[in-house]
Design a protein around this nucleic acid. Sequence first.
DNA 1: CTACTCCGTTCATTATCTGAACTTAGGTTC
DNA 2: GAACCTAAGTTCAGATAATGAACGGAGTAG
Lengths: 157, 157
Amino acid sequence: MKWDDLAREPCSVARSLAVIGDRWTLMILRDVFLGVRRFEAFQARLGISRSIVTERLNLLVAEGVLERRPYQDRPVRHEYRLTDKGLDLHPVIMALVDWGDRHYAGAVGPPILRRHKGCGCDFHAVQVCSECGEPVTARDVEARPGPGVAPEAKPVA
Amino acid sequence: MKWDDLAREPCSVARSLAVIGDRWTLMILRDVFLGVRRFEAFQARLGISRSIVTERLNLLVAEGVLERRPYQDRPVRHEYRLTDKGLDLHPVIMALVDWGDRHYAGAVGPPILRRHKGCGCDFHAVQVCSECGEPVTARDVEARPGPGVAPEAKPVA
DNA sequence: CTACTCCGTTCATTATCTGAACTTAGGTTC
DNA sequence: GAACCTAAGTTCAGATAATGAACGGAGTAG
């Protein structure tokens, strides 16, 4: 399978990865969620090829994850901001942070603390069932083919 | 920055991506969570180069995400199973599924339905604060440098 | 003996990424 | 008003990684 075929797979993971599954795209999104908005900043922070930054940003804009909007005239300069669709990626980033915090932080503790504005506590994300509100782990989930036709959906791990 | 440098970044997202951020690694993990365990199955389902399957599985085993264990002697054949560390990746996969379901499923509906064994309902994952239990969105989070030293942690989105 | 299965490895071709220079359009310093 | 600066790209030769196809090895089935 080629990378481009992912978008046509009957699988939501594959379709998501077709957009954000690229090597650097998620790093760019991390920065966007931290408030980085400009081309130069992405390039400098990540230290990757400028052409890659261009390409990834263009893809994210084309997919409606980011919005390219001018922040000044003369000369016209643009910044990249999360759309609502882009903000929906927050759980993905949070899940990555949590996994990294748990398994790679070491004794020192995590490099970034996240405070929940609602309660004022430092926290990590817990995934709960949308219906009953109970926490969900891998073993609590049973996958089966849905209306959009799935590739063999067997039980979980 | 080179891809290998990611693991040394003071950022949990970067460290996570150093392990699972590869093009095909997350697709392999998707399959593992669906119950796929064998080399041939990964290769056949993904249709990617066998050398890539080898390399990715080896990396995931080396990182302790998967465990390679014999499931028969003569000839010795191995299967790949999630370790506890691997099971911890479930929220990442779930978040990707949810995003794909929401933005790429179309009118037909999602390709896979997930039922919560606890309550018996089809569900999607909701992220809540580990401390107060309230749902968390991007705007509810305030990031700041932690003990592990962070790169400039500015407010979110 | 031949065919088949599972799990890999090897390697030439092809695709992708990098790093450095260049462009465009205007601003700042002196 | 020449020299330099910034932000946001583009271009392209060379390095790196992925692909697809063939090959190997270790056993089983007939």
